[in-house]
Design a protein around this nucleic acid. Sequence first.
RNA 1: GGGGAGAUACCCAAGUGGCCAAAGGGGGCAGACUGUAAAUCUGCUGGCGAUGCCUUCACAGGUUCGAAUCCUGUUCUCCCCA
Length: 411
Amino acid sequence: MSGRESYRDLPVQEQLTVLRRGVVDITTEEDLLARLSGAQQTGRPLRVKLGVDPTSPDIHLGHTVVLRKLRQFQDLGHTAVLIIGDYTALVGDPSGQNKTRPAVSRREIEDNARTYFEQVSGILDMERAEIVRNSEWFRELSFARLLELASKVTVARIMERDDFQQRWSRHQPIGMHELLYPVMQGYDSIMISSDVELGGTDQTFNLLMGRQMQRDEGQQPQVALTMPILVGLDGVEKMSKSKGNYIGVTDSPDEMYGKIMSIGDDLMENYFELLTSVEQTRYRGKLDFDHPRNVKAELASLIVAQFHGQEAAARAAERFDRVFREREQPLDMPEITICPGMLEDGMIWLVRLVTEAGFAASSSQARRLIREGAVSLDDQRMLDADAHVAVSDGQVLKVGKRRFARITIGK
RNA sequence: GGGGAGAUACCCAAGUGGCCAAAGGGGGCAGACUGUAAAUCUGCUGGCGAUGCCUUCACAGGUUCGAAUCCUGUUCUCCCCA
C-alpha cells in the first residue's frame, strides 16, 4: 500500500530479501545488489521493465504474478516501465508456443491495450509507472537497422530454444518473423535503458537476449529476473485463458472465490506464495494445523479482496458457504425475464427456459443437461426434455451445482 | 525449381465408396462421492420443437443411386533433392 517512502531507505540486503520472494532466478543477483546500492547512493531509481503483448483482452492471475513483483519494485521506490507490446503483438511471442500465434489485428490490439491499462491499474501504482508502446520505435525502425541488430544473433543461438527445437523436430512450421521476436524484445530494453527486466521463466531466453543486445549497444546489461509460471486451476498446466483454467482479474467475486475453492490442496502453498503477501511461515504453519478447507477459504478471501475489496470478499465467502455447504439457494442471483409471448397458458417449454437463461448454448445442449439430471426448478429435478412447465414470478431455476436464476414474468 | 507426404469435430488421432454425426484418447459438461476439494466411478459431448430432418472431414468443382473416402483444380503445411 503506502509507506513507499519508508521503504526507500531500507538496507539493500533487506530490499533484496523482499524482491527474492517467489523468484526463480536472478541473472545475476550480484548485479542486482550492485544496482540497488547504486540507486540508493545516487538517488536514481532503477528502471524496471515489464513487457506485455496485448494479444488477448483480459489479464488473469498468471499475469499478476509478475505485475505484483513489479509493484514491489515500485514500493521500494523504483520506476516501473511497462511496455505495451502493440508492435511485438503483431509478431506474436513464440515462447512456449507449439505453433505460430494467430495474427491479431491492429484493432484488437488497440482494444486490448486499453483494457490492459485498466486492469493493470488495479495492481500497479500508475502514478509511478511509465507506460510506453513499442510501436513508438518499431514503426520508425529502418530495415538497415534491423539487419544490423539481427546480424549479432546467430540462428544456432535462436534455435537452441526448446520451443523452437520441438517445433523443428516435429516438422511444424516456424515463421521467419518469429525468429525475430527475441531481437525485438531485446531492442525494447535498449530503447528504455532498462536496469532490470521481469518475466516468467518462459521469458528467460528473451530476457537474456536483452542483456546481450544492450551490451552490444554499450549499455549496462539488464538484470533478468524470472518468476514461475503460475499453474492453472487444474494444477497441471499453466494458467491460460485458452485452456480455461484461469481466474481473470475481472471475474466476479463469486467466480473468483469459487474457482479458488475448487483447486487441489497441493496448489495452495504455491498460490499463497505467488498471489498473496502472506509470510511463508504463516501459511506453512496454517497448513499443518488448520483444516485445508479453512486455509483455502482464507486464500480465496485474500485474493478476492485484492481485486474487489474486503467487503466483496466477505460477501463471496458468505454466499459460497450458503450455496455449497448448506446447499441453500444464494440470496442474490441473476434474474431472467420471460416475456409473456413465450408462454402458452402460462407454460413454457423447459428446454427454452434453460436456453433463455443462458445456461445452455443450444437446445440440444439444454436437452442433454435435462436428461443428465442437471436441471431443477424450485428444487425439483426436471428430467423430461419435452416437458412444458408452469412458471411464475420468483421461481428458481438451477442448472448444475452453481448456476441459479430467478424467474420473472415480464410485461 | 523437381519429387514425395499430408490437412478429419475444442485438441491429438482412426477411418481409404454405403453399416459414418464419424473409433480411441485428452479436454469440457453433468451425475455419484466430497471439503463445490483433489482423486475415483458413470454418462454426455454438431444443430433443429427432434424416434425424424439438416449441416459438417482444408476450399471449389466433378464421378457415382450413394463420397471424409475416387477424380480435377486451388490454398496451406512438412520432408527429400537442387
